[in-house]
């Protein structure tokens, strides 16, 4: 009856607030601040953060960089499509390219070694979704993101595309092997 009538007092701001509301607001505020400070704290003490490093880049330049890396560090080819597999040295810059509908090339990394992983798309938006660890990064054409990655478990990993990228989106896969 009254939530849709004008407030009973003209000067409703001056009506004192009940204790229950004040206590709840105080508790909720503390919780909100805890959640806020968790994020900067994780940047200092946590191990999973996305850094600020990103560049503008053209498809041709990025493609050239990828090809250069493949030439230097290619170790074998996989599948009938002869997709190159690259085993870069420890700490190297690794260039991964997303395009319709493939992650290129495949990578062979070592456990507990940190690499500089570059991500870029040369056509549309794609979604880097590393399974089964479930790390998900947006890949935007024209923007190269650099992530320092440190695999913590050996095994075979698959990169799924989880940003809709057209009719064959669901067939876009890539591979990363992590060796002991």
């Amino acid at each position: 009856m009254t939530s849709f009538l004008p407030p009973a007092q003209k000067n409703w701001w001056a009506v004192p607030v009940g204790r229950q509301e004040i206590i709840w607001i105080a508790i909720a505020l503390v919780w909100c601040l805890i959640m806020f400070f968790m994020m900067p704290l994780w940047h200092v003490y946590g191990n999973q953060n996305i850094a600020n490093e990103a560049y503008k880049v053209t498809p041709a330049k990025y493609q050239a960089k990828v090809n250069e890396m493949i030439e230097k560090y290619k170790v074998r080819e996989e599948t009938a499509m002869k997709i190159p597999v690259v085993a870069p040295p420890d700490g190297a810059d690794v260039y991964l390219l997303a395009r319709l509908w493939q992650w290129y090339p495949m990578l062979e990394l070592k456990k507990d070694v940190t690499y500089r992983l570059h991500l870029n798309s040369i056509d549309w938006n794609h979604g880097f979704s590393l399974q089964p660890v479930n790390i998900n990064i947006q890949v935007v054409p024209g923007y190269e993101m650099v992530l320092n990655i440190t695999p913590n478990k050996a095994g075979e990993y698959t990169i799924v595309c989880n940003e809709y990228c057209g009719i064959m989106h669901h067939s876009m896969l890539g591979k990363i092997w992590v060796k002991e």
């Binding site: 089964p132 479930n134 698959t158 669901h170």
Partner: peptide
């Protein structure tokens, strides 16, 4: 568990990379 949104085939049937 990592299942993607907006995705037609979570089984990736017939994909040579298989997952």
């Amino acid at each position: 568990l990592g299942v993607a949104r907006r995705h037609w085939d979570m089984g990736f049937a017939g994909n040579p990379l298989g997952f």
